[in-house]
Nucleic acid binder design. Structure first.
Lengths: 268, 268
DNA sequence: GCAAATTTGTTCGTATGTATT
DNA sequence: CAATACATACGAACAAATTTG
């Protein structure tokens, strides 16, 4: 009796899920059925199902039953750029085009514009004093009608004072912000640095992305700092924070000469 | 009575963890103590602590107690390359150097060499027939003595027949495999494509990486396909699978002109 | 090295509340 | 409103891991 009963039951259900006896979206036997089938108390059955729930294999719906989770078709974002630095995957200008190019539907909310005193994570990346004013533009993005990512881009408030007034308008900047900043301020983007990190979603993120309220599904946080040419090397131009659910996103980074096909989702 | 009791208790403990009243590594009150403190049954207390456990905030050690988890100093891997394609972060030649350059200690196990019939995930990437022979070289990597990543690289068996015999030796290839393949077979690497995907760890991976046996901590799977120049565009040279725990790894990708500092761990 | 004490792990039983159909 | 199914809560007992005397 090395293996506790709840685990034996969990393993049996796991096996049925893996082999496809229980299909994705299908309903598990109810707690009562499992109880009679395994001659166990209801609490033991609940422990077994809990084991599966904690691993994200099944979902419980109060009043309905327990169901095998359905996998979402992953979306692939291109982070590399090669020649066309301005068109790569996470930025507003290129995002919708890339999504539609993959035969999926992209929707973006109108940007929510805020002026705030730069918190450390923005100030340090833009190399402006902490507490100095910055403009943030925040968008909610959908792919195929499902909430997909949250993106916030921050610019020094100085840009607005110098003439880039459209940064404050709660509308997409026509032609994209990159070319807008070039036209109005002569700022030319020459490179960018992406950071990828993984963490549990914040409350607000979990709500928009409809993630389960335990923190089982993490998010990928992509922080892109864009640089313009400066006298003393590249200087920060803007910084973009993108948050995507880890369970339905993949990333591709090309370097040097690679095949030209558009990479689809991979399995490993 | 909107909030169930076990959640109230969980929130109170969560607060103590967040504010630092309970320090990382510190012990929580025992179930008995919490029971008397909150006038609740032991099962209710256990539900509360379970809530924290499921979120990865505390760890239970049978016979000892419950403890606040300690965060691991994240390691930053560079995936971009710019000019020095052969030196970037996930490949054997550059890995140890990059780790030591960050002031940490890198250790690598001797490669475990296998000859096997190519499974689909390798065959399709190397563009060899499924079931044809390939050589895989697998290494376990440590940073600061803790298990950090598992890496497997696959080459077509044809390379060995054409003279790259050292691929079969269970030892590091002196000077690195890239230059070895160039010297022996004239194969020149001209680019690579990285894919980043996230998934639950396999049993074997969880064991080596010492991940909790629930699948709370996911792994980042980095699949790098390296290409050589061919008559009809780039042709696959080798493919490398790297698996790293998602809770202690970050990635940096540079593109174009960016500052030259070595990026440390970021917080978001 | 063994025994006792402490602490978490598993399992049963029972009762009542809440959400959905 | 009733039936179904999951959620929360109580109490009790024994098992297993760890530390301490």
């Amino acid at each position: 009796m090395a293996e506790p009963m709840y685990r034996v039951i969990a393993m049996e259900l796991l096996d049925e899920i893996k082999t496809g006896t229980l299909e994705p979206g299908g309903q598990l036997p109810t707690e009562l059925e499992l109880r009679t089938r395994h001659q166990a108390s209801r609490n033991t059955i609940r422990d077994a199902v809990k084991w599966l729930t904690n691993r994200g294999l099944v979902e419980k719906k109060p009043g309905k039953g327990t169901f095998v989770v359905e996998r979402i078709d992953p979306y692939v974002t291109t982070l590399s750029s090669g020649t066309q630095a301005s068109l790569s995957g996470v930025e507003d200008e290129g995002w919708a085009a890339e999504v539609e190019g993959r035969g999926r539907t992209a929707t973006t909310s109108a940007p929510r514009v805020e002026v705030l005193e730069a918190p450390p994570r923005i100030a340090s990346r833009l190399r402006v004093p902490e507490g100095s004013e910055v403009v943030t533009r925040r968008q909610e993005r959908y792919i195929d009608r499902t909430p997909w990512s949250l993106q916030t881009t921050a610019y020094p408030m100085e840009y607005v004072r110098r003439g880039a007034a459209d940064l404050l308008r709660a509308q997409p900047v026509p032609g994209g912000t990159i070319s807008y900043l070039r036209r109005t301020l002569g700022l030319e983007q020459v490179g960018h640095r992406d950071r990828i990190l993984l963490r549990a979603p914040r409350e607000e993120e979990a709500r928009f992305l409809r993630l389960p309220d335990d923190n089982r599904v993490w998010v990928v946080s992509v922080i892109r700092t864009c640089y313009a040419a400066g006298d003393d090397g590249p200087v920060p131009l803007r910084v973009t924070f993108t948050v995507l659910p880890a369970d339905r996103n993949q990333f591709v980074i090309d370097s040097g000469q690679v095949p030209e096909d558009i990479p689809g989702p991979a399995i490993d």
